[in-house]
Design a protein around this nucleic acid. Structure first.
Length: 561
RNA sequence: GGCCCGUUGGUCAAGCGGCUAAGACAUCGCCCUCUCACGGCGAAAACAUGGGUUCGAUUCCCGUACGGGUCACCA
């Protein structure tokens, strides 16, 4: 077979050579050890948690080594493309502190445009580049056209698949596929000419030289050493529309763009043999690979499943909606990514996570279950360290989008809100009331008359006369200028006079000797003022609320009894 | 089904031939305490399994089981 002739037949308009491409995209000049990584999404939807994961690794590795993180849009499947998805992905990632140095990134107008000299960074725009290499592979007899239509292929699969789902005859299917493939390899130049003359579309397939009986030794930076069978499948390089498949585009782009580390989910491991084969055919040095374990969830049967779109906690926008702070999510991601991160954090409570020396060796080999308990804990630790002003701004921003009524009252008086969020904040042992911004309203909504409601009633077991007497006495003696001790002494006095213990130890020693304790008296006040049995320090609460509203609520409670 | 990867408490995980097998989250108990939150102390809870190798295996090798991933003109 005259492969040069075949190449001309297939790609008559391609005149450039691979060497021209190499010249056009010279190797990067970077300091020793600098890593070049990328985020290469197909614009088919939103960023999900499983995608944020490897991307965070890519970002850390690039930026902590003085390298480059770039964005390449893998829009090779026009059928699945969702308009606007790429912009959405970029914006979402930016919230999680993932910013790109290069690639298809947003300009000032919010539109995607190329930054960098290795573009275009949209694969759909790179067809001419891929064709240069495709033509070369044909010349070398390592790729060939296949005129079997998609429909014919589907029929073939139907034959082998019928009556099934569970009981697919895998072996028969594999054999049929193999036979079909071998048949496709047999053709003459005349056949090709005839097909082309008839305008028949074709795909370009690789001529696989692998023998699955032989194994390739390979070292993955996460998974370690492994052996995978060589590839013997003539997989598709160029689809009939001339656009490459992932495999081909991956090899060409990551070579030309100078990627040093390919970081992707472990679902790519099975096609690794194909990629290695391609790099070899093309004469490229293969990048280093890191196949990252997947995040899992539990299905109805209690089995682990890969966390995918639609699962609760998959869409990053869900976290925004639920009120998780991006800082908290990043923190959680880091704890999952590096097993010694939490230890580092304990020693460096105030440093940004980007100071953490990210270590590939500390990455888990197997997939972990997404755990909201842990996320919440991590989140509380992050939020409790923020300043009151910061928290106020962020709660307000969140509420304005997701709880507008609440957002409005917060925004109406930021100074007042900040006083509230300052309660128990600062110092070595700050309160940890908030895991999400959505927790704010149930926690402190009572500070606003609009959201004040009786959530917990005073238990029926108490004598109403005592409750009224306690509240009345408190109202009569309330002096806003009292310090905390004076304030509490008054509460104790009320307790004592009503036959309640003013000393908790005495009460615990002999509960039967009292109607109750000062804790109960405080509870009456707390329910009256906050509507809840649980609230932050009452003295502080009353001061923030102010005398008028405090008294109004106490009097209203008395009236209702 | 073939191929690849994995398997330490409910979850995330240290461990890298000899340990009473860390720690964190969650759970429970106690303490602190006017409630909550915080904090302190404590409890319960694990090396999937069978063979090797070895003086000795959680750790190394093989098998089994279980789990995951993947087998497209999708990425």
């Amino acid at each position: 077979m005259d492969f040069n002739r075949l190449a001309e037949l297939l790609f008559p308009h391609v005149s450039e050579l691979p060497s021209d491409m190499e010249a056009k995209y010279p190797a990067r000049q970077l300091p020793e050890g600098a890593k070049v990584t990328r985020f290469a999404p197909s614009p088919t939807g939103f960023v999900h948690f499983g995608g944020l994961f490897p991307t965070t690794v890519a970002e850390r590795l690039a930026h902590q080594s003085g390298g480059v993180l770039y964005l390449r849009i893998e829009d090779t499947d026009a059928k699945r493309e969702v308009p606007g998805a790429a912009e959405g992905l970029i914006k979402t990632l930016a919230r999680y502190n993932i910013c790109f140095d290069e690639g298809a990134i947003l300009n000032e107008q919010g539109q995607i445009s190329d930054h960098g000299i290795y573009g275009p960074y949209k694969q759909s725009l790179r067809a001419p580049i891929y064709h240069v290499f495709a033509k070369q592979l044909v010349r070398e007899g390592r790729a060939y056209p296949c005129f079997t239509t998609e429909q014919e292929l589907e029929e073939l699969q139907q034959v082998n698949k019928k009556e099934e789902l569970k009981n697919t005859d895998w072996q028969a299917q594999a054999e049929a596929k193999r036979a079909e493939m071998l048949k496709n390899r047999e053709f003459t130049l005349e056949d090709v000419e005839a097909h082309l003359a008839a305008g028949d579309p074709f795909v370009l397939r690789i001529l696989a030289d692998g023998d699955p009986e032989r194994k390739i030794k390979f070292t993955d930076l996460v998974k370690g050493n492994m052996e995978i069978p060589e590839n013997d499948e003539d997989f598709v390089l160029l689809k009939s529309d001339g656009i490459p498949t992932y495999h081909f585009a991956h090899a060409i782009d990551d070579h030309l763009m100078g990627t040093t580390h390919v970081i992707r989910g472990e679902e790519w491991l099975p096609s690794l043999a194909k990629h290695l084969q391609l790099f070899r055919y093309l004469g490229f040095k293969a990048p280093k690979y890191m196949h990252i374990a997947q995040i899992m969830r539990l299905d109805e049967n209690g089995n682990k499943k890969k966390l995918s779109k639609r699962d609760m906690g998959a869409n990053m926008d869900d976290y925004t909606r639920m009120g998780y702070s991006p800082e908290a999510v990043c923190e959680y991601v880091m704890t999952l990514l590096n097993s010694n991160y939490e230890e580092w954090r304990a020693q460096n409570p105030d440093k940004p996570y980007t100071d953490f020396p990210f270590n590939i060796k500390k990455m888990s080999v197997s997939g972990c279950l997404f755990d909201f308990n842990k996320l919440n804990d991590v989140s509380k630790n992050v939020l409790c360290r923020m300043s009151a002003a910061d928290v106020t701004a962020k709660v307000t921003e969140w509420a304005q989008s997701f709880d507008p009524d609440f957002g409005a009252v917060l925004a109406a008086d930021p100074a007042y809100a900040e006083q509230i969020f300052a309660i128990g904040r600062g110092g070595k042992k700050p309160r940890k009331d908030l895991a999400t911004w959505a927790d704010a309203k149930p926690y402190m909504g009572f500070f606003y008359d609009e959201f004040y409601q009786i959530v917990d009633a005073i238990p029926e077991s108490f004598d109403k006369a005592d409750i009224v007497a306690a509240l009345t006495a408190f109202a009569q003696n309330y002096d806003e200028s009292d310090d905390m001790n004076a304030w509490f002494d008054k509460v104790k006095t009320i307790a004592r006079e009503l036959g309640f213990a003013d000393d908790m130890k005495a009460y615990k020693a002999d509960p039967a000797a009292f109607k109750g304790s000062v804790a109960d008296i405080s509870m009456f006040l707390r329910v009256a003022v906050t509507g809840k049995q649980n609230a932050p320090d009452l003295y502080t609460v009353m001061h923030i609320l102010g005398r008028d509203r405090t008294m109004a609520r106490i009097n209203a409670t008395i009236a209702s009894l």
